[in-house]
Design a protein around this nucleic acid. Structure first.
Length: 252
DNA sequence: AATGACTTCAACCGCCAAAGA
DNA sequence: ATCTTTGGCGGTTGAAGTCAT
């Protein structure tokens, strides 16, 4: 036991971040004695750490078989599937992901999938994503509507031409003057579409918007758990196999 | 560039169950 | 049978880093 270690022993338990020296002492201990008997670590190494703290440090950080780096998409899929089956049994989930710790998975889940009301930044991102989806939907719909309109115009022109050919030439001039403008079925259809979009909670009910006006699609700023939940589902594709609350006791 | 909000993750806390005295 | 110790687990916290305004 070196001078630093004996100095550590003179006082109570240490807390907070581990130092390189502490890590080294713990690693050497485990190499010599194996895992377990964590309460004897302090006695044998001079570490001023509780057995619990030593175990946690080893399991979550020092273990040589730990995988470093970000959770991969494959691992994420496994986490989602297992969480849907097991709920918040992080250690059980971790056992299926070699090199990952329960703590790591727990943290990952909480930061990526916890379905609480999202933060302001997350809300802004979600809203933007949602607006883009809505814009694209409307653009496609209006495009198809435009094509339909063109087709109907052509048909109308053909019909008019046919009628005109059947009438006397002298009547044609009069016919042109008397025929009322064709009711705008397409505008009505567009309004119906906008009304249907109102049902999504995004469209604000203002008069038919142009492409330039799409940005004004707004959501109320106050809490609306249901709406945000549906937003999460929309953006996530709701691939969570339920919201996890059924398996985890409903906290999320 | 400054600052406040937000995210990430290491570490701690409290509870519980198993093992042993 | 009861108490104590130990290890394991899930939940929570706080510091540091990152991002947005």
């Amino acid at each position: 036991m070196d001078a630093i270690s004996s100095l550590l022993l003179q006082e109570g338990w240490r807390k907070g971040p581990w130092t390189a020296l502490e890590d080294r002492l713990l690693t050497e201990y485990v190499q010599q004695h194996g895992e377990g008997s964590w309460n004897s670590v302090a006695k044998l190494t001079g570490l001023r750490r509780s057995g619990k703290s030593c175990r946690l440090r080893w399991v979550n950080y020092l273990r040589p078989d730990l995988k470093r780096g970000k959770i991969t998409p494959d691992e994420e899929t496994v986490i989602l599937q297992l969480h849907a089956m097991l709920g918040n049994r992080w250690s059980a989930i971790a056992r299926c992901l070699p090199g990952r710790t329960d703590n790591e998975i727990k943290n990952y889940w909480r930061t990526h999938f916890k379905k609480a009301r999202p933060s302001r930044r997350a809300r802004a991102q979600l809203l933007h994503q949602y607006q883009l989806q809505q814009q694209e939907q409307r653009r496609q719909y209006l495009q198809s509507l435009h094509l339909l309109h063109q087709q109907q115009q052509q048909q109308q022109q053909q019909l008019n031409h046919h009628l005109q050919s059947q009438q006397l030439l002298m009547m044609s001039q009069q016919q042109e003057q008397q025929s009322p403008p064709e009711p705008d079925h397409h505008q009505a259809a567009a309004m119906a579409m906008m009304n249907s979009l109102q049902g999504t909670g995004c469209y604000d009910g203002s008069p038919a918007s142009t492409a330039e006006e799409e940005h004004y699609c707004t959501l109320p700023d106050d809490d609306d758990a249901l709406l945000w939940d549906s937003l999460w589902r929309l953006v996530d594709g709701d691939g969570c196999g339920g919201d996890g609350s059924s398996a985890s006791g409903g906290e999320y």
